[in-house]
Structures are given as C-alpha cells and as structure tokens.
C-alpha cells in the first residue's frame, strides 16, 4: 500500500498513477502516452542491466529510463 514512484514497483506489481512530478516535455509526453491521473500501470520487467524498465499501460508496452519513471508517482495496487 501507499505511494511510491513507478520505478520502485516490483516486477509484476501494478499501481495507479497519482501525479507526475516535474515539468516540461518529459511530463507532457508521459501524459500523452497515457500515463495520466488514475491510469493503471503494471511494472513488467527491468532491462538485463537494471535500466531502463518496461511497463504495461493502456494495453501496450512502454519502456522508459528509471530516471523518467522516478517522476511518475503511483499508488500501489493490492496484489491479486
């Protein structure tokens, strides 16, 4: 339970987007790709060297660097 950044989720774990910190193009593009308030997002896996990560959102798979994922604050979903 509780709030954390998207990059802190464990593989297979899901969260609901609360807000996206920061500003400018990164924030806008993340939102335009579908990561807006209330969106369910699942952490699929990290790349072999730990970065970037792959998440599933709105039915497609998106990869982003941990640094970018840090700005996405999610509410952890209950497992199951």
């Amino acid at each position: 339970m509780g709030e954390c950044s998207l990059s802190k989720l464990a593989p297979g774990q899901s969260g609901r987007v609360r807000r996206i910190d920061g500003q400018g193009s990164a924030r806008q593009r993340l939102q335009e790709l579908g990561l807006i308030r209330g969106t369910l997002v699942r952490f699929v896996r990290a790349a072999p060297l730990g970065d970037p990560i792959e998440v599933r959102v709105r039915g497609y798979n998106l990869s982003l660097r941990r640094q970018e994922a840090d700005a996405v604050i999610v509410e952890r979903e209950k497992q199951g």
């Binding site: 400018g24 193009s25 990164a26 593009r29 993340l30 790709l33 970037p52 792959e54 497609y60 798979n61 998106l62 990869s63 982003l64 660097r65 640094q67 970018e68």
Partner: peptide, 11 residues
C-alpha cells in the same frame, strides 16, 4: 542539455 527522453514503445 536536458537529458533526452527514452520513451520507447515495445511493440
């Protein structure tokens, strides 16, 4: 400059 975005779809 600003670190470029690495937002990439995995189709």
């Amino acid at each position: 400059g600003e670190a470029p975005l690495f937002l990439m779809e995995l189709p």
